[in-house]
Write a protein that binds this DNA or RNA. Sequence first.
RNA 1: GCCCGAGUGGCGAAACGGCAGACGCAGCGGACUCAAAAUCCGCCGAGAGCGAUCUCAUGUGGGUUCGAUUCCCACCUCGGGCACCA
Length: 817
Amino acid sequence: MTDHSDSYRPDEVEAKWRARWAERGTNQPDLDHPRRPFYNLMMFPYPSAEGLHVGNMFAFTGSDVYGRFKRLQGYDVFEPIGFDAFGIHSENYAIKVGLHPAQLIPKNIANFTRQLERIGGMFDWRQALSTTDPEYYKWTQWLFLQLFKAGKAYKKKAAVNWCPNCKTVLANEQVEHGLCERCGTPVEQRFLEQWFFRITEYAERLLGNLDTIDWSETTRTAQRNWLGKSEGAEIVFEVPAEPSSRRAAESIPVFTTRPDTLCGATFMVLAPEHPLVAKLTTPDRKAEVDAYVKAAAAKDLVARKVGEKEKTGVFIGAYATNPATGKPVPVWIADYVLMEYGTGAIMAVPAHDERDFAFATQFGLGIVRVLAGAGQAAGAPLAAAETEVDGFRLVNSGRFDGLEAEAGKRAITEWLAGAGKGKAVVQYRLHDWCISRQRYWGPPIPVIYCDACGPVAVPEGDLPVILPPIEDFRPDDSGVSPLARHEEWYYVPCPDCGRRARRETDVSDTFLDSAWYYLRYPSAEFHDRPFDPARTRTWCPVTTYIGGNEHAVLHLLYARFLAMVLNDLGHLAFEEPFTRFRAHGLIVKDGSKMSKSRGNVVIPDEYIAQWGADTFRMYLMFLGPLQEGGDFRDAGINGPRRFLERVWLMVGAVEDSGGELRKELVTRWHATRKKCAEDIEALRYNTAIAALMELVNHMKEAGCHDKAMVRDLVVMLAPFAPHFAEECWERLGGAGSVFDAGWPAWDEALAVSDEIELPVQVSGKTRSKVSVPRNAPEEVAKAAALADPAVRRFTDGKEVRKVIYVPNRLINIVVAG
RNA sequence: GCCCGAGUGGCGAAACGGCAGACGCAGCGGACUCAAAAUCCGCCGAGAGCGAUCUCAUGUGGGUUCGAUUCCCACCUCGGGCACCA
């Protein structure tokens, strides 16, 4: 191509339109008086030192295509962007390279900003935010105070997950298989004073609302599993007083999902940490029990939770009474029972629970069957626990014998409640959210401890509590934050009594920063309020949210919880923050997900420099459906490039063809408008792009350069290749931005053709095609089919048994033999 | 172990229960060129046949149906989540 005046040069075009958009405020909706507000949100990035990688770009482009499409449909689309820049990621990296995070983060943000602009996102940069900005974390602290004042934040000494490498506490959600999610170090148990949010109070609502929101099913399932609802009963086992050792009577409540098996409870097991263990242990068992408790406490959570098949445990010498049978049952402790779940104690029913069966077998404890199938004797021996009990009936259960399992559950629970020995309860797997971190790089928790007044909230007028710029920000093994080494910072007068008091030195979890950022975007310029009521009413809840499923149970659950709390406290009118959520797929490279931690990231900058952002955007979106992700390899990028160049040439050669267009082409035109819109709405960008390519192929074949068609083509291409489309639009004489052109409307009647190529099957095998009018009556189609020579070869001389005709789809002639 | 996804040409993929492989990449043949690149035209699942055509083919095995990539049952493989949660 020697004619430079007519070749497409992405660098120039893209730079030109980036400048135009900034100049004209193209991407800045009227935040106060939008006609049709549409909040298009993408999960904000953590600004890593490596920069935005191809996996990020895939997700951001996916969200941006949708936002631009909505814009073309006439919505006032608000597409904000920001940076989730606090947290251990940034801090650890700063430690590694020997810099202060406060120096590092602004550089990373600058780099991300450059990249995000370069990929052509429709971001409203006026409202950009960083969670590390005091103007932002002031309100994160405010949020904490609202929960604190409402009694939804509390401090307790608790067994927490401690990462000895990151030297901090982790939330349960940040522990994977007993390993630290970030660095893979085995997590230890420590007992520390920690701040918690009462998310468990919201478990029922968090679960129930899942049925009311339009979210990816995978995400909702993940949340349901995480919430882990179990319905069952709490049953109290009494331990009679022991006069010889002067021990009083005690009672041990247990939680079970199988109250129907109560009569089969032949022993009990307590968690080693259970508070009753010390009281109930008999003197002769004390040495052995103490040793076991100690050993269990020393075990890290990996050893305790995974891998171990061998059951261990010790008898503590006490006997409790089975409330249904009145028989004594021995009380054991074992580390397969967890203090954090239920009551920390179980009734063991070895006949119908695998773990209890293994334990009973190992220690020679009694096994009594209480459920039997048809033809099974009540005394039939068990080779293994029988947990599948469909159609089984209760046996060895006295007055409850003969009931089916479900009926037995109800009957026994009712009987327990009447006798004051138990009640129906619902348990959740969810724990309260531990939000304190013994680290530096986060918002200080705004509480002051006074010897006279106790924990006091920092007055809202004193916010933000600025994170001091200390040099020795590295964590240590002490279990306290680096801020605790700075007296000059933490000694302050008590806000209530004025006496010397000390600040909380822990900072809050990064997930608190990100749990409310969507509220800040529309109100980012207000200094005196976290989120403006009018702006929030206009823009929230978020219309469409796109993000990674790795946040299904972390970020997305916390954000929902906080919205509910703010709703209860009267700050928000809604309780579900994201009306529609779609999880994008992951970009895989060399067999595993592209991520910094796996070291397989590809930075898009070089590709963009070589091909242009538009071509690269189209290439990524053409890979496959957004929700499925795909393998990254750069083979194939030539396709979108050739396509855009073809369209470019077409734009240079347009002509007015008046009403001369072929009927077939008009049909394609309308069908493409429709298909492309429907596919984008469903996030099937790959087939939307394919439809545009098909249209171009047909236009080329027909030698068509019709101006109106080319203009539509450019508009439909705009979500994918925004700079390119703007340039073409301008060259076609369009006024303003192509994004104000409106999505081309289609006529349903024109989108289908009058003549149909109808496939003809003979006994279910396709043999030929015949041309018939659209919606042809069966007789017409049948006559045409039976007249076709290719069909007659299979039907001649045979009896037609039946004809199946699906108008406009197919005709199937079923013949005998 | 349990709960979600997904298995289709050399590759990325497409297909309201109705022509399997749209669209694209790579490859092959040709045109243009001194030549190469770019561009344009044609071919492109496997097997048989000179051919029009025929047979086989959507992870495996069954089933429902006139007809199954699609629905049902069992199994295999690969991703992801949960996991001693009582």
